[in-house]
Design a protein around this nucleic acid. Structure first.
Lengths: 247, 247
DNA sequence: GGCTTGCGTAACATCATGTAACAAAAGGCA
DNA sequence: TGCCTTTTGTTACATGATGTTACGCAAGCC
């Protein structure tokens, strides 16, 4: 993929330029935009991969703009907001934002979110009807999604519990992308069947789970090679993963 | 039951036709719909068993449409979305969607979900649907429904009790679909005819029954290959099953 | 350096499941 | 009917998975 083109939409000039600069420094083509018109200009000009949209634009509510953009073109949108209230968050998703991030935000987290959204958008177009991935490989390890079996480089079969397996799956599906504990928890709660248990933000279940998985697949759990911690953010799977389609 | 009639609602023409085709190839009567009006047309026209609804319709939010449909008619709905954010998922359940699936999705998973929802909606559907099937095969095993005979890959005949047989039948009729203990109990109680026995949610009869069946058809009952546990849910038959119709 | 915060993890608490052992039913047969 | 065998359900306990808490260490920050 070419260098992703991003638009930074914010009515505060300083925020705008800081975010733009930050993104540029991190390898993205970022353009500051002040108004909806500016966005349209870029959209007409050609491919735009992602829009970072401030929810509190002076003239209009970001959520509404997002809704309108969605109708016209399928551009991924991340809402940025100074409000951390959750109903706002919901509102953003309802109109089709791909993600949401609250100010003040952790720069690394912003990058992680941007990469994650680009990653999703990039794949979903071509992958929708592709046959499912059945085998993941990394550094000699292998995970067979169909049988739920994990095999070590030495050929030993490693027994993982269901949650451990689910965690591994989430990580393998998002290599090199930092995932927050909430994101992981959400992904793990998806049982695929009846559900009603709202995921909580309480305990440290994820930390413990990560620790347990490390104990099973890391040579030295104290200095993990794959399951790395991103302090203040969450965890990343820090290895290249190759996948293989099932028949 | 007749062949289930499904509606595929999506504003993207390509997605619509691919999903429709895929479902048709897998034995469903599937119709593409572009708008809510199209849905209503089909609903008025007669029985519709399930609606697959894209959350990101151009004009309106799928979740809202789902909510409205729910109020009017009791049609099962599965939401389909390009957003993997789980907040959406929650939202979908709140308004009464029967399930939710994120794009890009595994086609087999889609089929499983569709069958599961249809199954729930019409409990006896899948068993009745397969009444003409006389022989089931899986991983070398064979179950002859006419003679109630189970044959192992080595050709040994395995003797199952009536309940064990009934359990196997239910599982074979719903491969890869997790069944709750209640669902299984219901299916077992109704087998004969009269149905005055109120299925209870009390004891652990199903667990024990599953254990006994495992003892007879699993090579290693401790780590079952076919009759897998879905913690917190129930059990699944985790093998591909082929069927053969009787003359 | 001291302070604050986040993380790792052992130890415990909880809960679902597996299963042996027993009890109750259901047949089968003289 | 009465006795025996087989099937089915219940109970009790063991096991294992998952989540929580508590405490100590390490990383960042001044």
């Amino acid at each position: 993929m070419a260098i992703p083109k991003l638009l930074v939409v914010d009515d505060d000039a300083e925020t705008r330029s800081m975010m733009t600069q930050f993104l540029q420094q991190n390898g993205f083509m970022a353009f500051p935009c002040e108004t909806e018109d500016a966005i349209r200009h870029h959209l007409k000009g050609g491919r735009v991969d992602l829009i970072l949209l401030d929810v509190m634009l002076a003239d209009e509510n970001g959520v509404e703009i997002c809704a309108r953009l969605r109708k016209e073109q399928d551009v991924p949108v991340i809402l940025v907001s100074a409000l951390s209230a959750d109903h706002h968050r919901m509102k953003g998703y309802e109109v089709g934002a791909d993600d949401y991030i609250a100010k003040p935000f952790n720069p690394q987290l912003l990058l992680a979110r941007v990469r994650a959204v680009l990653h999703r958008a990039n794949r979903s177009a071509s992958l929708v009807y592709r046959r499912s991935v059945s085998v993941f490989r990394f550094a000699g390890w292998q995970y067979d999604a169909k049988r739920d079996e994990v095999t070590s480089p030495q050929g030993y079969q490693v027994a993982l519990s269901r949650k451990e397996t689910a965690l591994l799956k989430v990580l393998l599906a998002n290599p090199h992308i930092p995932l927050t504990r909430d994101e992981i928890a959400n992904a793990l709660d998806v049982t695929g069947e009846g559900q009603g248990t709202p995921p909580e933000g309480s305990g440290r279940a994820i930390d413990v789970l990560v620790g347990r998985l490390r104990g099973k697949i890391e040579a030295d759990p104290k200095s993990p090679e794959f399951l790395r911690t991103e302090r203040g953010i969450g965890y990343v799977f820090a290895a290249d993963v190759t996948t293989e389609d099932s028949a």
